[in-house]
Design a protein around this nucleic acid. Sequence first.
DNA 1: GTTATTGCAAATGATTTGCACAAGG
DNA 2: CCTTGTGCAAATCATTTGCAATAAC
Lengths: 168, 168
Amino acid sequence: MENVSIADIQDKLNGFIKRKGLRRTPQRDAIVELIFSTDEHFTADELYDRIRRTNSTASRATLYRTLSLLVEADLLHEIDLGGDQKTYDPNFVDSPSHNHLICIDCGKVVEFADDNIEILNDCITRRLGFRPAKQSIRIEACCETLRSKGICQDLIKSRLSSKRINKK
Amino acid sequence: MENVSIADIQDKLNGFIKRKGLRRTPQRDAIVELIFSTDEHFTADELYDRIRRTNSTASRATLYRTLSLLVEADLLHEIDLGGDQKTYDPNFVDSPSHNHLICIDCGKVVEFADDNIEILNDCITRRLGFRPAKQSIRIEACCETLRSKGICQDLIKSRLSSKRINKK
DNA sequence: GTTATTGCAAATGATTTGCACAAGG
DNA sequence: CCTTGTGCAAATCATTTGCAATAAC
């Protein structure tokens, strides 16, 4: 699954940074390292928690600023999962055109790629007089747990309880 | 385009209200009247402005509470257009399964329905082991203005400038 | 050195909520 | 009446920002 290494990402970011006249910092390196060491989606807050568990430091401000930088450099995408916090997806470097299926009950997210839906997307877009650009399709559905047990609140609970409670 | 009248919506809401042991109020009537008198998408703030231009009154608090009520009664849908403010779509009573195409430059939104994409959506969902539920597909693209003039900032500007500026 | 970056604390802004008063049924 | 709804102002909470100190290059 991991075709692009962290070193590749760092290279790309450094290129971007140089082109823009910006600077490489230990905070940015640490954040990139952390984000791209897994393929998990995350919120700013979840990432902040993860950083605090390492021996690197970065303030929330720096974290938010770095997230914006990575999105601008097209290394990270903001995806709309609904909810109050923005969610970030680090997998677009590996899989430039994937989409998301979301359980409307528990919030579980599955990534998928499908040629047919891309073609159809393209057709619909042109038919409406638009020019196809960024592919971004979100399907809402019910996951297995919901199907078999009638309900699956585990994940939604954990997502709700992840609200920030004065964690400095 | 308008197959469902405001009276129908009022009836549905009143049924919902009775079933829940809630109460019909002039504020709720006025808000419903206003929302369903057009097929425009809107934000809470835009709706508040519209209300102030009528001779009915409703506070922001009541407005937010009524929006939640309407969403719960399935007469109104929250749609994700990105951006800080939630957007509401009053057209799901008329067209229960439509989707949205959005210009990534100016934010212009077009509704569409397509049987093929619904079927495909269904297939993908089942293939991933989910049960199809709410159809909600958002396609991002570039609109005509962008195509012909290279850029179309009109709407995005107006959307940005619609940020609330101490309008009591 | 010069300019970008950081961390802090304060600001922002949409939405929510507590509470006292008003008003449906 | 009794309970729900309303309006106000205050609270929330994710995110952004001003600013002085710090660190790339």
